Structure formats: C-alpha cells, structure tokens
Amino acid sequence: MTVEIALRRARVRYGPLEALHGLDLPVPAATVTVLLGRNGAGRTTVLRALAGTVPLAAGRVVWGGRDVTGLPAHVRARRGLCFVPDLRAVYGTLTVAENLDLAAPGRRDEALAAYPELGPLLAHRAATLSGGERRMLALVRAVLAAAPPGAPARVVLVDEPSLGLARAVASRTYGLLAALTGPPAHAAVVLAEQRVPPGLPAGSVAYGLSRGSLVSGDETGHGTRHTG
C-alpha cells in the first residue's frame, strides 16, 4: 500500500482544548478513506490538518514522502489538494455558473451531467441556494478539480459529503467520489462521515475516531464491512 499523505503524531489545539492527541493516520493513494465518529470526534480537524487550514501544535504532515507541515493551505491547494468543508464551500456572491467556471473553465457540461439539478440554477447567486444545492455545487467543483484535463488533484478531502442531500443524490455523490480513485485521476479521497457510506470500492479503508484519537480501523470489503 502506497501512502499518499499522512499525519504523524499530530496534535491540534483550539486554545486550551486539544482536538487531536498525537494522531498517526496514513491515507493510501488511489483509495477512499473514511473517517468515522460522532460530532466532536476530531474528523473535521483531521481534514483541516491535512489541508493546512489549522496549524499543528506538534507532529507532521507528510505528503508524497515530503514534510509539508509548514506549507500554507493555498500552496497545498496549488500542489493538488482539494478540500470541501461542511460549510462555506462556495462563493456566495457569485452565480452558480461563475462558481463552476472558476473551478473548471469550459467544463460546465461535465458539471451538469454530474448534477443536472444545478442546470436551472446557473444564473442564481450561490448564497440564495438551499443547503443541498450549495452542497452539490461545492462537490462538483471538487470532482472537476480532481479529474483531468489539466493537473488533477491528488488528494480530495470532503467533510460530510451527504450533508443536506436527498438519498438518491447522496448515492450518486459517493459514486462520483469513489470514481476519482480510479483512472485517470487515481486520487486519494478522504471522507468524514458518521457511518460507512454504501457502495464504496473494494480496498476502501475506514477509521474510527473518538475525542481526537484513533480507536479502530480496517479495510472495508466492497464497502460492506464497518469499523467497530
């Protein structure tokens, strides 16, 4: 198993509160990794630490065998890391069309093929969309960023991808994200969820988190084996 990106003995503090307690977390290349846990377990903080949007109090972030702990978030993004947070993941003052064109110029048709629900909303400002509509817009921007042409994202981090989505749309979303691990993208995809999503590809990895520590982990057989 080739590790694409990893946390090494990572500690993150928010004021006096330590959110991650010396966490070691390898993220395999070309694989879906699921971070499981309740709210407050540390899932979002793991994603932020990998993305560089929160600093480490101790430990390292290693990406492609290199220590990138000191690299700011925008530099990691330029090097191929795409982060979709649970909130504020779109540009609210821009229209849906402008959000899509900013993420992937000339590829609007691909975006609408993935989420046709966005078609009637192209002229609407993102701030006026429902939570589920904003989620679709944020997710499709990430999917396009991770898929060629151009330099595809090597790491895609998504915080609660199904948030606000109808069941059918959530299922389609998991399929789109899982497809990024195969050719031609071969991305390492990390999802923060409260339960293992259905339909993950064979070889996907699930880790349980509780209060900032890793409590369990195993490979999911065809997406059906849960982390205990």
Score class of each variant (00 low, 15 high):
Asp101Asn: 05
Leu102Pro: 03
Ser130His: 01
Gly119Glu: 15
Ala103Asn: 07
Ala126Ile: 07
Ala123Gly: 12
Leu122Ile: 14
Pro116Ala: 11
Leu112Trp: 14
Arg125Trp: 10
Gly119Ala: 15
Ser130Met: 00
Ala113Val: 11
Gly131Ala: 05
Gly119Arg: 15
Arg107Ala: 08
Glu110Pro: 03
Arg108Asp: 05
Asp101Tyr: 00
Ala123Thr: 13
Leu129Ser: 13
Leu129Trp: 06
Leu137Tyr: 00
His124Pro: 07
Pro105Ser: 11
Arg125Met: 03
Ala126Tyr: 13
Glu117Thr: 14
Ala127Gly: 15
Arg107Thr: 08
Leu102Ile: 06
Gly131Asp: 02
Met136Thr: 12
Leu112Arg: 12
Gly131Met: 03
Arg108Ile: 05
Ala126Gly: 11
Leu121Asp: 02
Leu121Gln: 03
Thr128Leu: 13
Ala111Gln: 12
Ala111Trp: 08
Thr128Glu: 10
Ala114Phe: 11
Ala104Tyr: 07
Ala111Tyr: 04
Ala123Gln: 09
Leu112Ser: 04
Leu121Val: 05
Ala123His: 12
Thr128Gly: 10
Asp101Val: 02
Ala123Phe: 02
Glu117Gly: 14
Leu129Gly: 15
Leu129Val: 09
Leu121Phe: 06
Leu118Ala: 07
Glu133Asn: 04
Gly119Ser: 15
Gly131Tyr: 03
Glu117Cys: 14
Asp109Ala: 15
Ala104Gln: 11
Thr128Cys: 04
Arg125Val: 02
Ala123Met: 04
Tyr115His: 10
Gly132Cys: 06
Leu102Asp: 07
Glu110Asn: 08
Ala127Pro: 09
Pro116Trp: 15
Pro116His: 14
Glu133Lys: 00
Asp109Leu: 10
His124Val: 06
Arg107His: 09
Ala104Cys: 09
Arg135Ile: 01
Leu129Lys: 10
Leu129Arg: 12
Pro105Thr: 06
Ala111Met: 14
Leu121Pro: 03
Leu137Thr: 00
Ala123Trp: 07
Ala123Arg: 13
Gly106Asp: 03
Asp101Pro: 01
Ala111Thr: 10
Leu121Gly: 02
Leu118Phe: 09
Ala114Gln: 12
Thr128Ala: 12
Arg125Gly: 00
Glu133Tyr: 00
Gly131Trp: 02
Leu118Lys: 08
Leu137Pro: 00
Arg134Gly: 10
Leu121His: 05
Leu137Asp: 01
Glu133Val: 00
Gly119Val: 15
Gly119Lys: 14
Ser130Cys: 00
Ser130Trp: 01
Pro120Ala: 04
Leu102Tyr: 04
Pro105Gln: 08
Leu122Lys: 11
Met136Glu: 04
Ala127Lys: 15
Leu121Trp: 06
Asp109Ile: 13
Pro120Trp: 06
Arg108Thr: 06
Leu122Phe: 10
Asp101Thr: 01
Glu110Cys: 03
Asp109His: 13
Arg107Gly: 02
Arg125Thr: 03
Ala104Trp: 05
Leu118Gln: 09
Asp109Phe: 05
Ala127Tyr: 15
Arg125Asp: 01
Arg135Val: 00
